[in-house]
Design a protein around this nucleic acid. Structure first.
Length: 1048
RNA sequence: AGGCGGAUGGCUCAGGAGCAGAGCGCCGGUCUGAUAUGCCGGAGGUCGGGGGUGCAAUUCCCUCUCCGCCCA
C-alpha cells in the first residue's frame, strides 16, 4: 500500500457529526478571532452592525435565517481581505420585558408596580434579560455563526445608556424634540402610550364587535321651531360623556324629517339606511352642512356643561356620508381629528379617563368603571332618556396592543416627540445613498414610509428603560427645564455620579431650582422612560459609548457597510436608525441593507411557539445539520423579499443534503479514495493541456466569477445557484469522464494532471462555498490542505484560472449531444452497454467538435463518430421569428408573419428570408433544425445540430455488448465482495454458450476492466477465499466466482 | 382601517410583453472500479376572476375575489 497523504473518509458521512467536529476545532484553534485579526484595522474594514434581538424566547427559523445572512456576508468580506468585527447585541428594555415581569411577579399595572417597588421590579426585569441568553448563544454557535458574544453590547449597560442621554440631548439642542399634549394610541392594559408605528408593527388590527349607537342631540330651539334633534353615530359610546361638539361636512346635504312631534337632521344620503326607524317621518326640508354650523345643542351629559365654546355644530372637511349619519360626535380628548377640529374652534379637551382606562370622578355616574364596561350602562341611560334612535352591533377591525392583546383606546396624553417631519425630506434624500436588497424596497416600502413619516412619540409612562433626561421645576412659578446629556453633567449639578441610570435611582437626583431665590422649588426628573425603539435605533453610536469613548473608531465605522433584518424592520429598526442617524449626523446609518422575507410555518401561518407548527431548529441540526438548513434558507426566495413555507418534516432540508452536500462530498471522497490508493500528492495548478482538464478549470473560473459577482451584489441565492451548476459539471462530467485516468496503473504526467486539476477544482470550490457551507467546506478543505481552515484563506483569485469561453461552449455542446444520444437510445430501448456502430453529428461548425470525438464515442458507446456538415441530408430548417425584434417594425403584420412561419410558408431570400410578403433580416429570425421524419434523428434544443444514431447491430457488436454485461456482473460481484478498487483478482465464470462465446471474443477487455489476472471459463474456482454469486444477465443466469489475486 | 407582498404544474417557487420554467413529488428507464441519496427521459399548467392599453398580455394598467405579513 502506498503512502496516504489525505484522510480516509466515508462515502457518506454524518454531516451533523462532521459539523460538531469542525465546531470543536474552531473553538480549540480560535479560528474566528484569527480570521478577524488576520485582516488589518483601518479604512479597509468592512463594517457590520448587528441588530439587537429581544431574547424573550428561543430563536426560531426566522432568527436563524437572519443569523445565517449575518454570517455569510462577513465571512465573504473577510475572505476578500477585509476585517469584519461582529459584536452581538441584546435589546433589553421596554414593554416586552416589563410585561413578562408583570406576569411572573403577578403584579399588574402602574399602581401595583409602584406599590411593589420600582427597584425590585426593575431588578427582576434586569435578571429576566438573561433568561435565554445562554440558549441563544448555544444555538447561534451551533448554527456556525461567527459573532462575538464576549464583547457584546446591551442596551441596559451604563455606557450604552449614557450615549442615549447624549443622543436625546443632542436632538433637543437641534430643536428636534418637543413635548406635546396630543391624542395617541394608548394601551390601558400596559398603561403606556404607543407610537404610531407600534400600532402597525404587529398584526394588531383584528376583528372586534362593538356597540354602535345612533344618538339624538337636542338643538337649542330657534324661534318657532319644533323640537329638533341632530343624529350622530358612534362605535365608542364611552366617549359620549366627553362630547363637546358635533361636526358636519359643509358641502354635505342634510335632510330634515318630521314626525312623532319632532324634527330629525341627518345626511340626506343616509336616510335610506334608517328606513325602519324613520317610518312615519316625512321630509320637510334640506340644508347644506354649512348652514347648520354654529347652532348650539344641549349637552348629552352634565359633566362638562360649563366648558366654554362647546356644544356647537362645527364644520369639518373629513366628515363624509360613507357611514353613520353624516354627523360626527366630537370628543377632543379621545380622537385625533376631534382634537384638531375643536382646537381650531377654541374648544379645550377633557380627558376623564385614568391610566388604567377607568372613568375619573369627573364623570360621577361611571367613575371607576372601565370605559369598555361603561358602554352598556351609558347606552341604557341614553335609551331611558329616549336619546337612542338605533342600537346595533358593529364588527370592525380595531387596533390592539402588541404586548397585551387588549384593545387600545385613543386618549390625549402628554408625550415627548421627535420632530421627524422636520427631517423627512432629508431622510428621503439620504435614502438614495442606500443600496437596498431587494431593490424595490428603496423607493417602495421604505421610501414610501419615509415620505409619509410622522412625528415619533418617544416617551413611555413606564419603568424599565433609559430615563428621559429631563428635569423640571416642581413649582410653576419658577419654570425651568434642564436636559442632561452625560454623567458628567449629572455629577456637576447633583454632586453624585450615578452608577446606574435606571429608575428609581435616577429619580432620586433632585436639586433646588436655581431660579427660585427662596430655594423651595425643586428640580425633579419627569418620570417617563424612553421608547425602547429609540435605544435600538441608537445602537450605531451607543454600542461604542459614543461620543465619550472611541470617537475616531466611530468616525471610521459609520455608516455601516451592511446590515440585514427581516423586511418588517423597515418600520422598526431600519427606520429608527434612519431617523436618528439623519437627525444626529445627517448621514444614512448603513449603505447596504438586505431585507429578507418571512419564514412561515407549513400551514402558511406565522411561526408560532404556541401552535408548535414548526420543527425545532435543534432537531434539524441533529438530523441534517446546520449547513443544510443554512443553504435551504438562503437559497430560497426569502432573500428576495419573498416568504417561504417551511415544511415541518424538514424534507426540503434533506433535499439539500442530497443535492448539495452529497455531491460535494462525493467528489471529495473520490479524490481521497484514489489519491490515497496512488499515494499521490496533488497541488494547485493554473493550466492544463487536456480538454477535460482545461474545461473544468474554466468551469472553476466561471464559478469564481459568477459567485464573486453575486456576492458583491448581495445575491446570496445567486451564489448558491452558481455553485450547484459547478458541482454538476464537476461530478457528472469531469470526474465521470476522467475516471480511466485515475484507474490506470501508470503514474504518468496525465494522471498527475488529473489529480492536480481535481484538487484545484475542489479547493477552489470549497473556498467559494465557504460562506455558504462553512462547516462542510472546512472539513473538506482541511482534509485537502493539511489541516488549514478554509476560513483563514483568501477568496480565490479568478484571474489565476484560465478563462476559455469557446472551450466551455464546445464542451457544453458535447454534453448536450451525449444527452440527446441517450434519449435516442432510450427511444429505441437499446441499453447504453450495447455498443453501436456509429453516431453522425450534423450541424454548423463541426470542426470545433473534432477534439471531442473520442470522448463522445466513449460516453455514448459507439464505434465511430462522424461529423457531417451536410445538415440538409438529415434535417430541414424551421423558421422561428424573433417577434420581439419584428413587432416594433411590422406592427399589425407581425401576427401574419408568425402564422405563416409556423406553417412553413417561407423561403430564403439572399441573406434573409421572405415570409408573408415581408423580408426578414438577420436577427429577426432564427433557423432551427427539425429532423426529417423517416430517420432515427434527434435535434439539440439549441436547434443547430442534429444527430443520427445507427441502430443496426452486427453479430460482433452484440457479442461486445454481452461481454460488457458480464463485466458489469463481475464488477457488482467485486463490490459485494468488498474488494478494494485496485485489488487484482482471479476470476471464474460459468456462462451459457452465448455469453461464453462473447467473453472468449473479448477476453482481453474483460480481464482489463475487472482487474482479472486470470479468467477461467471451464473448471470453476475452488478454495477457501472464493466469493461466489449468481446474477442475471439478460435472460440468463450467470455464476461468478472470484478471489483476490495473491501478490506476485 | 392602513402599509406592503402574493395568487404560475400535485407541492414549494423562479420568470417576465414575443412558442410557459426549476426543484420536489409521480411514472418509466438506466450508467456505475466516487455518488441509485446518482443519471436520463416523460406526464402534468386556458399563469386567481373580469375589464382596459398594445400588432401581441401570464407579464403593463384598472377592478374584484382570496391569501399572507407587520419588532427576525
Amino acid at each position: 500500500m502506498s503512502e496516504q497523504h489525505y484522510p480516509l473518509v466515508p462515502a457518506q458521512p454524518s454531516y451533523p457529526e462532521v459539523e460538531e467536529r469542525v465546531l470543536a476545532r474552531w473553538r480549540k484553534d480560535g479560528t474566528f478571532r484569527r480570521s478577524v485579526e488576520a485582516r488589518p484595522e483601518g479604512p479597509e474594514e468592512y463594517v457590520f452592525y448587528d441588530g439587537p434581538p429581544f431574547a424573550n424566547g428561543m430563536p426560531h427559523f426566522g432568527h436563524l435565517l437572519t443569523g445565517y445572512v449575518k454570517d455569510i456576508v462577513p465571512r465573504y468580506q473577510t475572505m476578500r481581505g477585509h476585517r469584519v468585527e461582529r459584536r452581538f447585541g441584546w435589546d433589553c428594555h421596554g414593554l416586552p420585558a416589563e410585561m413578562e415581569t408583570e406576569k411572573e411577579l403577578g403584579v399588574s399595572g402602574r399602581a401595583a408596580i409602584i406599590e411593589y417597588g420600582i427597584d425590585r421590579f426593575n431588578d427582576y426585569c434586569r435578571k429576566s434579560v438573561y433568561n435565554y441568553t445562554e440558549q441563544w448563544q448555544e444555538i447561534v454557535h451551533r448554527s456556525a455563526r461567527w459573532v462575538d458574544f464576549k464583547n457584546d453590547y446591551k442596551t441596559m449597560d451604563l455606557s450604552y445608556m449614557e450615549s442615549i442621554l447624549w443622543g436625546f440631548k443632542t436632538l433637543h439642542e437641534k430643536g428636534l424634540l418637543y413635548e406635546s399634549f396630543r391624542v395617541m394610541p394608548y394601551s390601558w392594559a400596559a398603561q403606556t402610550p404607543l407610537s404610531n408605528f407600534e400600532t402597525r408593527l404587529d398584526d394588531s388590527y383584528r376583528e372586534r364587535t362593538d356597540p354602535a349607537i345612533t344618538v339624538r342631540f337636542e338643538l337649542v330651539p330657534e324661534s318657532g321651531e319644533p323640537p329638533t334633534r341632530v343624529l350622530a353615530w358612534t362605535t365608542t359610546p364611552w366617549t359620549l360623556p366627553s362630547n363637546l361638539a358635533l361636526a358636519v361636512g359643509p358641502e354635505i346635504d342634510y335632510a330634515i324629517l318630521e314626525g312623532n312631534g319632532e324634527r330629525l337632521i341627518l345626511g340626506a344620503a343616509l336616510v335610506p339606511k334608517y328606513e325602519s326607524e324613520l317610518e312615519g317621518y316625512e321630509p320637510v326640508g334640506m340644508r347644506k352642512g354649512r348652514d347648520l354650523v354654529g347652532r348650539r345643542y344641549e349637552p348629552l351629559f352634565p359633566y362638562f356643561s360649563d366648558v366654554e365654546k362647546a356644544f356647537r355644530i362645527v364644520g369639518a372637511e373629513f366628515v363624509d356620508v360613507e357611514e353613520g349619519t353624516g354627523v360626527v360626535h366630537m370628543a377632543p380628548g379621545f380622537g385625533e381629528d376631534d382634537m384638531d377640529v375643536c382646537r381650531a374652534e377654541g374648544i379645550p379637551e377633557v380627558v376623564p379617563v385614568d391610566d388604567a382606562g377607568n372613568f375619573t370622578a369627573e364623570v360621577v355616574d361611571y367613575a371607576g368603571q372601565h370605559v369598555f364596561d361603561a358602554n352598556k350602562p351609558i347606552i341604557q341611560d341614553l335609551k331611558a332618556r329616549g336619546a337612542v334612535l338605533r342600537h346595533e352591533s358593529y364588527v370592525h377591525n380595531y387596533p390592539h396592543c402588541w404586548r397585551t392583546d387588549e384593545p387600545l383606546i385613543y386618549r390625549a396624553m402628554n408625550s415627548w416627540y421627535v420632530k421627524v417631519t422636520d427631517i423627512r425630506e432629508r431622510m428621503v434624500e439620504l435614502n438614495q445613498q442606500i443600496n437596498w436588497i431587494p431593490g424595490h424596497v428603496k423607493d417602495g416600502i421604505f421610501g414610501n414610509w419615509l415620505a409619509g413619516a410622522r412625528d415619533w412619540s418617544i416617551s413611555r409612562n413606564r419603568f424599565w428603560g433609559a430615563p428621559i433626561p429631563v428635569w423640571k421645576s416642581d413649582d410653576p412659578k419658577f419654570p425651568r427645564m434642564d436636559v442632561y446629556g452625560s454623567l458628567d453633567e449629572l455629577e456637576r449639578d447633583f454632586g453624585v455620579r450615578p452608577d446606574d441610570l435606571h429608575r428609581p435611582a435616577i429619580d432620586e437626583l433632585v436639586r433646588p431650582n436655581p431660579d427660585d431665590p427662596s430655594g423651595k422649588a425643586m428640580m425633579r426628573r419627569i418620570p417617563d422612560v424612553l421608547d425602547c425603539w429609540f435605544e435600538s435605533g441608537s445602537m450605531f453610536y451607543a454600542q461604542n459609548h459614543y461620543p465619550f469613548e472611541k470617537r475616531e473608531w466611530f468616525e471610521e465605522h459609520f455608516p455601516a457597510d451592511f446590515i440585514v433584518e427581516y423586511v418588517a424592520q423597515t418600520r422598526g429598526w431600519f427606520y429608527n436608525m434612519m431617523v436618528l442617524s439623519t437627525a444626529l449626523f445627517d448621514r444614512p446609518p448603513f449603505l447596504n441593507c438586505i431585507c429578507h422575507g418571512v419564514a412561515m410555518a407549513e400551514d402558511g401561518k406565522k411561526l408560532s411557539k404556541r401552535l408548535r407548527n414548526y420543527p425545532e431548529p435543534t432537531e434539524v441540526f441533529k438530523t441534517h445539520g446546520s449547513d443544510a438548513l443554512r443553504w435551504y434558507l438562503v437559497a430560497s426566495p426569502l432573500l428576495k423579499g419573498g416568504d417561504l413555507k417551511i415544511e415541518i418534516d424538514g424534507k426540503p432540508i434533506g433535499d439539500v443534503v442530497r443535492n448539495v452536500l452529497n455531491p460535494l462530498w462525493s467528489a471529495w471522497y473520490f479524490f481521497s479514495l484514489y489519491a490515497n490508493a496512488d499515494g499521490v500528492v496533488a497541488s494547485e495548478t493554473r493550466e492544463a493541456s487536456g480538454v477535460l482538464d482545461r474545461y473544468v478549470l474554466a468551469k472553476t473560473r466561471e464559478l469564481v466569477d459568477r459567485a464573486t459577482e453575486a456576492m458583491d451584489a448581495y445575491d446570496i441565492a445567486g451564489a448558491c445557484q452558481a455553485f450547484l451548476a459547478f458541482l454538476d459539471a464537476l461530478n457528472n462530467w469531469y470526474i465521470r469522464r476522467s475516471r480511466p485516468r485515475f484507474w490506470k496503473s501508470e503514474q504518468d504526467a496525465d494522471k498527475q494532471a488529473a489529480y492536480d486539476t481535481l484538487y484545484t477544482a475542489l479547493t477552489t470550490a470549497c473556498r467559494v462555498a465557504a460562506p455558504l457551507l462553512p462547516l462542510t467546506t472546512d472539513e473538506i478543505h482541511q482534509g485537502l490542505c493539511g489541516g488549514e481552515s478554509v476560513h483563514l484563506r483568501d477568496w480565490p483569485d479568478a484571474e489565476a484560472l484560465p478563462q476559455d469561453a469557446e472551450l466551455v461552449a464546445d464542451m457544453d455542446r458535447v454534453r448536450e449531444i451525449c444527452s440527446a444520444a441517450f434519449a435516442m437510445r432510450r427511444g429505441e430501448k437499446v441499453r447504453v452497454r450495447q455498443p453501436l456502430a456509429s453516431l453522425t453529428i450534423a450541424g454548423a461548425e463541426m470542426n470545433r467538435l473534432v477534439p471531442y470525438v473520442d470522448l463522445i464515442e466513449d460516453e455514448v458507446n459507439v464505434k465511430e463518430v462522424r461529423l457531417s456538415p451536410e445538415i440538409t441530408d438529415f434535417a430541414d430548417f424551421r423558421l422561428q421569428v424573433n417577434a420581439r425584434a419584428l413587432g416594433p417594425r411590422l406592427g399589425k403584420d407581425t401576427k401574419e408573419v408568425i402564422a405563416a412561419s409556423k406553417q412553413g410558408q417561407w423561403k430564403r431570400d439572399g441573406d434573409g428570408v421572405e415570409v408573408a410578403g415581408h423580408r426578414l433580416e438577420e436577427g429577426e429570425y432564427e433557423l432551427k433544425l427539425v429532423p426529417k421524419g423517416d430517420l432515427a434523428c434527434h435535434a439539440l434544443p439549441s436547434g443547430d445540430t442534429v444527430l443520427v444514431l445507427d441502430f443496426e447491430l452486427t453479430e460482433k457488436l452484440v457479442r461486445e455488448g454481452l461481454a460488457r454485461d458480464v463485466i458489469r456482473a463481475v464488477q457488482q460481484c467485486r463490490r459485494d465482495a468488498e474488494l478494494n478498487v485496485s485489488d487484482p483478482i482471479v476470476l471464474s465464470l460459468k456462462l451459457p454458450d452465448e455469453l461464453r462465446a462473447a467473453v472468449s471474443d473479448f477476453r482481453e477487455s474483460v480481464a482489463e476492466a475487472t482487474l482479472a489476472e486470470r479468467i477461467d471459463l471451464d473448471e470453476g474456482l475452488l478454495g477457501e477465499d472464493v466469493f461466489r454469486q449468481t446474477t442475471r444477465v439478460g435472460s440468463h443466469d450467470v455464476e461468478v466466482a472470484l478471489q483476490k489475486a495473491k501478490a506476485a
